[in-house]
Design a protein around this nucleic acid. Sequence first.
DNA 1: CAGTGGTCTAGACCACTGA
DNA 2: CAGTGGTCTAGACCACTGA
Lengths: 233, 233
Amino acid sequence: MLTRDQIADQLRKRIERGDLKPDSALPPERLLAEDLGVSRMTVRVAIDQLAEEGLLVRRPNRRTLVAGDKISRSASFMSFSEEMRARGWRPHSVMRQSTATVADVPVAAQLNLEIGAKVIYLERLRFADGEPLALERVHLPYARFAPLLSLDLTNQSLYTVMEEALGVRPVLAEESVEAVLLSTQEAEIFGTTAGSPALLTRRITRDEEGYVIEAATSLYRGDRYRMALVRRR
Amino acid sequence: MLTRDQIADQLRKRIERGDLKPDSALPPERLLAEDLGVSRMTVRVAIDQLAEEGLLVRRPNRRTLVAGDKISRSASFMSFSEEMRARGWRPHSVMRQSTATVADVPVAAQLNLEIGAKVIYLERLRFADGEPLALERVHLPYARFAPLLSLDLTNQSLYTVMEEALGVRPVLAEESVEAVLLSTQEAEIFGTTAGSPALLTRRITRDEEGYVIEAATSLYRGDRYRMALVRRR
DNA sequence: CAGTGGTCTAGACCACTGA
DNA sequence: CAGTGGTCTAGACCACTGA
């Protein structure tokens, strides 16, 4: 039996191959269901999934359209490594710090821990195509993530390691983004000049159960990085 | 018969009233369906809707949870006025320019028009609690939006006017965000100093049919504004 | 008017959880 | 093991679109 995901994959491939052209209409749902030997509801959830990704555009009472070329993909979040690869840049990292320490007031509040509770602190300088692009500072609860300290995180996505080694899936991130100027110290790390513009993002990430698993800040060079996102209404 | 939306509203109210407490489990879907006299599938789409908004947290094979207090709402986009009111600030605007002009190469590319096609240009300085916060520049296709030029947009949300006066609903926005420094001219408009950090967002907005309805850039003072967003994975 | 997506029903079977 | 969410079926009726 064909599942929702298999049907979505099939449609995705047809679009990528060009069988279904941008701005053209999809066949009627009832016809797709019959051709694929599934019920119409199953076709609908597959279409919903692709519409959510931005590949298809639903129009009430009219056929669903294949999205135009320029609509970019979903608003889901990616790790630094994933994002850089998606943009065609080669990522690598230098680990500057990786220690166990204790939570001060702001960190405790962000991670929902007691003040003084053990936490892990990671600081990585992240490169794209050999150039330093972002300085990332992450706090994690020690109780859940102690094993991370003995793993090599230099060139691995933190989210991938969390998932594969600890079975923890980050699913929701609340982020804020602001514009700041680089301090002398920060400029030195990037090899640029103090007072250059930079994007500072703060992120609180939660797992499937809604528990906070990470409080992170990332400082991106303003002259090299632009954040992209898709919003819906 | 109860619909998906009515069921979602009912659950939303129960959560707001505190009948359903944060971090507690929702009743089983089968029980809710029976109590409400609807089928389980209908209950499920209502729950999906609230989970999408961040009010509920689904857990496979376990009861759905009411989200904890701190999880913020959806990642949908808002107009400047809507966003300011949501943050508890009083918005107002000064219209600096509102003219018909012709599309140059970048504007034509963004709006999917021929070079030289007629477009509307709006430039507004936007205030929060009496302080200048953002400089917004918008291009719209003249063919669809000519009536806007004769309306008062000084203190109205552009999206509200589009919807109410023209029946056009903005539903999808592709945005990019970067950090820049204010030029002497821009600093003068804000009444601050050149070289201050600022957030520059570029936005392409589409209607329900996927047509581009707006190409906008907004320049936010970095010392006063922080962008907030929620990402999912 | 036929075509089409939006929504709903009343079941069914599955995989996973946790006592 | 019972409880539970995830997925699917094979229909049904509705409202809107556009010829």
